[in-house]
């Protein structure tokens, strides 16, 4: 395997509603920023890969327009996954492993605010037996939370503490959307949104985009003082039918974590893509993280959940922590599908 490093990362400020700029206008400045930071001339970046979904934009081929933001002239080697940008990163990492290219630009984007996000996610479910019943994202997550509560794996207080910690962490992240000091007692006094979930257990609706440049060792050392090395990356899938899974566990996260090499070795921080509070606890268990691992210093998805970018953002945020000197070894995670169906784990080191 070739050593590959994150050499630059940028994201838009995360907002509830990006009403002014369209996707191309959101992407252009951050792609420009990330390419400049990377220090590799745009034409020399070997591969470009993006992640997005047509149903957020409400139109077919919405990713085609995003090419306008890249500067694909002369033509570029480019691909797109209908997945979170974390999987675009995976495809780019594979391309570098093939020896075909030495560097890659990855980006992802979405304006969730244009639709009713929770309902849009209903369309992700089996179209024969599930989608016609209209299970929205919050209700499905609530089914999962109840399983964990019933099994005694966590309490509603534990969930509120997760939410309070994430949003406290977000105070130090100028790009986060929801930040603040929250009193756990007060959170627990609030009514349920969809029981057993309260508002604080759920992610905000977020518009945003993220971009990253990665490079193989030779290039990375040449252009960057502080490359952040991708030591392992793997992703796995669980069954789709909620009723055929043990929702209190995330076997795909556990497996991806093993393959990516989370252990042995001390983990300083973890950026976990847990849109719902209880999911952070399930993920922490699946990855076998100790209590002294700092989870989501960025505030995580409970502070900003730009769908299609939230996973790539976890890897970007973890790489920032390392390049900024706040951590030397980190695990970053991305998820997709109802109740953590698909999971990617990436281990990063300074």
């Amino acid at each position: 395997m070739r050593d590959v490093a994150v050499i630059a990362y940028a994201q838009t400020p995360y907002v509830r509603t990006e009403r002014v700029r369209n996707e191309v206008e959101m992407l252009m400045p951050i792609i420009d920023e990330v390419v400049k930071k990377a220090g590799i001339p745009r034409q020399e970046i070997g591969f470009t890969c993006s992640g997005s979904t047509d149903y957020l934009a409400g139109q077919s081929f919405s990713f085609v327009m995003a090419v306008d933001a890249v500067g694909a002239w002369p033509p570029i080697m480019e691909s797109h996954v209908e997945m979170d940008g974390a999987w675009a990163l995976y495809e780019a990492w594979i391309k570098i492993q093939c020896g075909e290219v030495d560097s890659a630009l990855i980006f992802s984007f979405g304006r969730s605010s244009m639709g009713e996000t929770a309902e849009t996610m209903t369309l992700q479910t089996d179209p024969y037996t599930m989608a016609p019943l209209g299970p929205d994202a919050i209700s499905m997550a609530a089914l999962q939370a109840r399983c964990g509560l019933d099994a005694g794996l966590f309490s509603e207080r534990d969930m509120a503490e997760v939410a309070a910690r994430n949003r406290r962490n977000a105070l130090t992240n100028p790009e986060a959307q929801l930040a603040g000091e929250f009193d756990v007692e007060a959170l627990l006094a609030a009514p349920y949104r969809v029981s057993p979930l309260r508002d604080h257990d759920c992610p905000p609706v977020t518009d945003g985009a993220a971009a990253m440049v990665i490079a193989a060792a030779d290039v990375a050392r040449d252009v960057s003082d502080k490359p952040v090395w991708i030591r392992g990356i793997d992703h796995r899938l669980d069954s789709h039918q909620l009723g055929s899974r043990d929702l209190t566990k995330s076997p795909s996260t556990r497996l991806a974590g093993e393959r990516a090499g989370v252990s042995p070795g001390k983990i300083d921080i973890a950026e976990l893509h847990a849109p719902f509070s209880h999911q952070e606890i399930i993920l922490k268990n699946a990855l076998g993280l100790d209590d002294d691992v700092r989870i989501n210093p960025s505030g995580g998805a409970l502070a900003a959940n730009p769908i299609m970018s939230a996973g790539l953002a976890r890897i970007g945020e973890a790489s920032r922590q390392i390049s900024g000197g706040a951590a030397s070894r980190a695990v970053a995670h991305a998820t997709s599908g109802p109740c953590l169906q698909q999971n990617l784990v990436c281990v990063l080191e300074g």
Binding site: R16, R19, T117, A137, Q177, R193, C202, P203, P204, V205
Partner: peptide, 11 residues
């Protein structure tokens, strides 16, 4: 999915 304040604008 939790509603936060939207920036006002007449776009």
């Amino acid at each position: 999915m939790e509603d936060t304040k939207s920036p006002g604008d007449d776009g």
